[in-house]
Write a protein that binds this DNA or RNA. Structure first.
Length: 298
RNA sequence: GGGGAGAUACCAAAGUGGCCAACUGGGGCAGACUGUAAAUCUGCUGCUUUACAGCUUCGUAGGUUCGAAUCCUGCUCUCCCCA
């Protein structure tokens, strides 16, 4: 029987966690979490990781395994998951992956080209220069260095421009030269399963979940993370809005409103991204039995 | 009962004779995105499947004008103050 990585994904707040436990138990396997923020052990309330009981029920990987001060990336995730998969496939023919971090999903589905890890000093340098001289000036520089990339890149997006410049400064090679534009081959099958539901209902669920997080003490958790607010791990919905509130930019009600709105928008962006996978098999939230049957016959 | 203010697109709000299908913000929709990705960015949001095109809009019914969301009159409604 061939090895299979079954990926259950979908927008935030739709109920992937609960379903993934049922699926994992049904398959008698373990779960690889694919969530870029549930990896930080300090973010217990705002990222809605599986509960202690849930973690007891099924063995999970990549939950609470990082400190917010750790550097991490989708590229590392790909390598670590592949490594883990090697050992898991010795025990199981099927492994379940679940989570909604689009880029991390893609790191497995299509793979990411080999690129050096970020050099934070150079990143800071690029950021400062961009703030000083503007994005347009940086784009001008990049056009000379890497015209190929500039042809296809979204040059109005500072992150894209900065990344390409960063890579050049680190390696002396243009960013486009690292890009192979080919999906990596895996020695296991990948099955993509998407969970979706009526948009209004999803948004209601998201809003409600934020209320539950607030009751559970999200504000206090955010306050504890306040000293780390500049770290990427804290550039996260549920925390960044509280930081601005703590800074006096707006009142608490506004912070809550923004957390809900930004969570909804995040869910929408996830759905846009998932639209790129023609192989994704979609199920409505109301069809979990059908989904389980589908997984059972894989 | 008397006096005053106002009615603009899903919401808020600007516009006070032509540059207005109507600023802006909110909300929403759609999308892009190969290492910071719960990030970052883009487009749309009266109708016409597309539009440098056409059509119907700014409470409502008329009027003035070459031309009205903008001026005038009646009506309806809302809010505030005095009784």
């Amino acid at each position: 029987m061939s090895k299979q990585l079954i990926i259950l994904t979908g927008p935030t707040g739709i109920g992937k966690t609960d379903l993934s436990l049922d699926l994992a138990q049904m398959l008698g396997t373990e779960i690889i979490s694919c969530d870029s923020r549930q990896m930080y052990h300090q973010l217990k309330i705002g990222t809605a990781p599986p509960s202690h009981e849930q973690l007891q029920r099924v063995k999970h990987h990549f939950i609470g395994n990082l400190n917010v001060t750790d550097y991490y990336s989708a590229g590392r995730f790909e390598l670590e998951v592949l490594d883990l998969l090697n050992s898991l496939f010795e025990k199981y023919t099927k492994v379940l992956m679940t989570g909604g971090s689009t880029m991390y999903v893609d790191a497995l589905v299509n793979g990411i080209d080999d690129l050096p890890s970020a050099d934070l000093a150079i990143r800071q340098q690029v950021k400062s220069e961009m703030e000083e001289k503007g994005v347009a000036a940086m784009v001008d520089r990049l056009r000379i260095i890497d015209p190929e990339y500039c042809e296809t890149a979204d040059l109005s997006n500072p992150r894209r421009v900065a990344k390409a410049m960063e890579i050049f400064l680190m390696t002396g090679r243009k960013y486009s030269s690292f890009r192979t534009a080919t999906a990596k081959q895996r020695d296991f099958e990948i099955h993509l399963i998407g969970l979706n539901m009526n948009r209004d209902e999803l948004y209601n669920r998201i809003d409600h979940r934020v209320d539950l997080m607030l009751e559970a003490g999200l504000e206090n958790e955010a306050r504890q993370m306040y000293p780390y607010r500049e770290l990427n791990a804290l550039n996260t919905v549920g925390y960044k809005e509280f930081f601005d509130y703590f800074d006096g930019q707006y009142d608490r009600d506004e912070a809550v409103r923004l957390i809900k709105r930004n969570s909804r928008r995040y869910a929408k962006r996830q759905l846009s991204w998932f639209g790129r996978y023609p192989q994704m098999v979609w199920f409505d939230k109301s069809e979990t039995d059908k989904l389980k049957n589908y997984v059972a016959q894989l």
